[in-house]
Each structure stands twice: as C-alpha cells, then as structure tokens.
Amino acid sequence: MDLIQYILLGIFVVATTVGYMLINNVPSRLHTPLMSGMNALSGVTILGAILATATALAGDKPVTGYIFGSLAIILAMINVAGGFSVTNRMLKMFERKKEEDE
C-alpha cells in the first residue's frame, strides 16, 4: 500500500466517525430530508465518473468507455441534482409552515 492509500483510509475513518456523531444530533422529524440529502451526497461518485470517462476517452476503447462513462455521469448527476433539490423542497416546507405560524 502506498502512502496515499493510508491517507485515504485515515480520511475514511475520520469522516465516518465525525459524520456518525453529527447525525446523532439530527432530530427524527428531519430524517426524511436527511436521507434524501444523503442520496445527493452519494452522487459525489460523479467525481469518479468524470475522471473515468475522461481517462477512457484517451484510452484504446474510447467509444465503449464513453458510453459507460456517460451513463455513470448521468446517474450520479441525477442523484446530486434530484437529491439536493428534493431536500430543499422539503426543508422549505418546514420553513414556510413556521413563518405562517408566527
């Protein structure tokens, strides 16, 4: 294993632990928006999709690579856009009701 891989493992452990602790504080009434927000975050795999597609385009099988790479980009982007947008829609609902009440 290279140094970068140890660093990645370290980052993984820290991010997981801190994330786990923070999510503990999220009230259960926000668990649905939290989950759809997590959907959006799991779309971060778009970074890998972009990288893979660009690499494949420069490789020896550019067409196959491009097709599958684009598929990954589309899917990941649906997650990012759809996830954040629907989460925003729900959280705005929570906001609106509060203002009406005041």
Partner: peptide, 8 residues
C-alpha cells in the same frame, strides 16, 4: 469520494 461516501 472517500470522505463524502464515508459520511453517507
């Protein structure tokens, strides 16, 4: 990818 994926 590693950090955000880990958080999720």
């Amino acid at each position: 990818l590693v950090s955000v994926g880990g958080i999720v």
